[in-house]
């Protein structure tokens, strides 16, 4: 190919025979095989649904909406997260809170099918209302509808 220079490494006589090198390689693989038969517990594989990995502290999992002390959502419907989201998966509808005259989210949907788990929404939030620290990552479901999380689901995560 033009522009690509291949640099050959000359093989010595023993390597040209292949057989010794093949034997060496075979010994490597049999060593793995035998040691894995006798020490199955040392194998790095996890038996997944039964065993689970210990997640790192900053693992970004499924979102949750935080609450104030009185149990109402912290979210003030400022649309920062919706604006920051590169995947366009958050859709908020703002309303007014009857008691305090404050803005509040009436609808807060996260389409988890579109989410790329980048965490920009968490960074954008001025009131620490959205977090991704649930550690939940098993998000499969049997319908697409169920994977659009509404405000109640997110508050109770």
């Amino acid at each position: 190919m033009p522009g690509i220079r291949t640099v050959g490494r000359p093989m010595n006589i023993k390597e040209k025979w292949y057989l010794f090198e093949i034997a060496k390689g075979m010994m490597v693989s049999i060593r793995h095989l035998v040691s894995n038969i006798f020490h199955q517990d040392r194998m790095p594989t996890l038996q997944y649904p039964e065993e689970k990995r210990v997640l790192p502290e900053r693992f970004r999992g499924r979102h949750r909406l935080t609450k104030r002390e009185d149990g109402t959502p912290k979210c003030v419907a400022c649309y920062c997260c919706q604006t920051a989201c590169p995947a366009d998966c958050i859709s908020i509808e703002a309303g007014e809170r009857p008691d305090a005259g404050e803005k509040v989210a009436v609808r807060f949907d996260i389409n988890i099918l579109r989410c790329v788990f980048c965490g920009l929404c968490v960074e954008a939030c001025p009131v620490d209302a959205i977090r991704m620290d649930t550690g939940k990552y098993e998000l499969s479901s049997d319908s697409r509808k169920k994977l659009i999380y509404d405000i109640d689901t997110l508050l109770n995560d």
């Binding site: 049999i30 793995h32 095989l33 194998m43 038996q47």
Partner: peptide
């Protein structure tokens, strides 16, 4: 099975 064990899988 042998492939898995050689490659450190179960």
């Amino acid at each position: 099975k042998a492939a898995a064990f050689i490659q450190d899988r179960t």
